[in-house]
Amino acid sequence: MWFEPATVEAVRDAFPEWMALLFAVLSYLGSVWFVAPVVVLAFWFVDRRRFAPWLGIVMGGYALMVGIKSVFAVSRPGVGPAIEPAALPTVAGLFYAPLVEVHTPAFPSGHALAAVVVWGMFALESDVGRRRDRLVVAGLIPILVAFSRVAVGVHYPIDVVVGLGVGVTYLVVAFAVVRRIDDRATAAFGLAATVGVVALAVSAEPDAATLLGGAVGALVAWRLATPPRDPWPRTPTGAGLAVAGVGSLGLVALVLTVTDGLLARWIVGFVAAATVVSLPAFVPSRITRRSSTEPEPAR
């Protein structure tokens, strides 16, 4: 049952074809294309002391995933999606294809692991709404993400079950480590670097090199160019910086698709993470706030 493509096909075929698009949306809630921008934007615009550790914990979680996937090297089920990306309009196809055309090892599910990590941190570390409601969301979304990965045909059930379990275990360990040290960001980046070293040693994968470089770059930037705690205000200037920053991350992602050398990947990860962490130190809040506080010049 656990490694039978027929099981995956049965789950996929139990739903109308149009629901493949819904499952794709759910998958994005555990995707790096969602997780990375959200955590970075929260670091820039909400509370840097609170969300800096999130950056490290997320990088460590992805490094752990890369290492485990390399060790087990389980192939994907080979079950096609209910809707082929080519059958969709161009924009929808671009949105949908990354979630159903996957060729990396399947075990464990990175989406399930990442969903547990990011939504677990949301429940335990944020102050949005009531804690009880956050815990319900943090329990429900990873399960939906996990199911969606089976429903789109790219994971066996055991992949997502273990992904959820690894995510919970990692988050517990990460919190135990980070909360023991006063400078939680340093602890989180150090943890991510440690996991990254192990992942690179056991896998020799470019993604592991990128994540290790990112952890080291973030740690160096945090220690040498610690940004002010005050977040960027939500002004037009701040929005412009956000668009430019997230766009730059998109360019980094494109570079990663054409670069497989370990050293090159390490450098790209280092520079990208160091930029994310140190940018607020060089573009302080008072600059972004001018667009909303400075009076118009007399005419």
Rank of each mutant, 00 (worst) to 15 (best):
G78H: 02
V79N: 08
V79W: 04
G80N: 14
G80I: 04
G80W: 10
P81H: 12
P81K: 03
A82R: 15
A82I: 07
I83E: 08
E84H: 15
E84L: 15
P85Q: 15
P85C: 12
A86Y: 03
L88F: 14
L88T: 14
V91N: 10
V91R: 13
A92Y: 03
L94Q: 00
Y96E: 07
Y96S: 01
P98I: 07
L99Y: 01
L99T: 02
L99E: 07
V100H: 00
V100F: 04
E101N: 03
E101A: 01
V102Y: 11
H103V: 10
P105T: 05
F107E: 11
P108N: 00
P108S: 05
S109M: 12
S109I: 08
S109H: 07
G110H: 13
H111I: 12
A112F: 04
A112T: 05
L113H: 01
L113K: 09
A114I: 06
A115I: 03
V116C: 02
V117G: 07
V118A: 12
V118K: 06
V118T: 13
W119M: 14
W119D: 10
G120A: 06
G120R: 09
G120N: 06
F122L: 13
F122T: 03
F122A: 07
A123H: 13
A123I: 08
L124E: 14
E125W: 10
E125Y: 13
S126M: 04
S126T: 11
D127P: 00
D127M: 00
V128P: 00
V128D: 02
R130A: 14
R130I: 00
R130L: 13
R131F: 08
R131M: 06
R132V: 05
R132I: 10
D133P: 01
D133K: 08
R134E: 05
R134G: 04
G139P: 14
L140K: 01
L140C: 01
L140R: 00
I141S: 07
P142C: 02
V145E: 14
F147W: 10
F147G: 12
F147L: 13
S148P: 11
V150Q: 12
V150K: 11
H155N: 13
H155R: 09
P157S: 11
I158G: 03
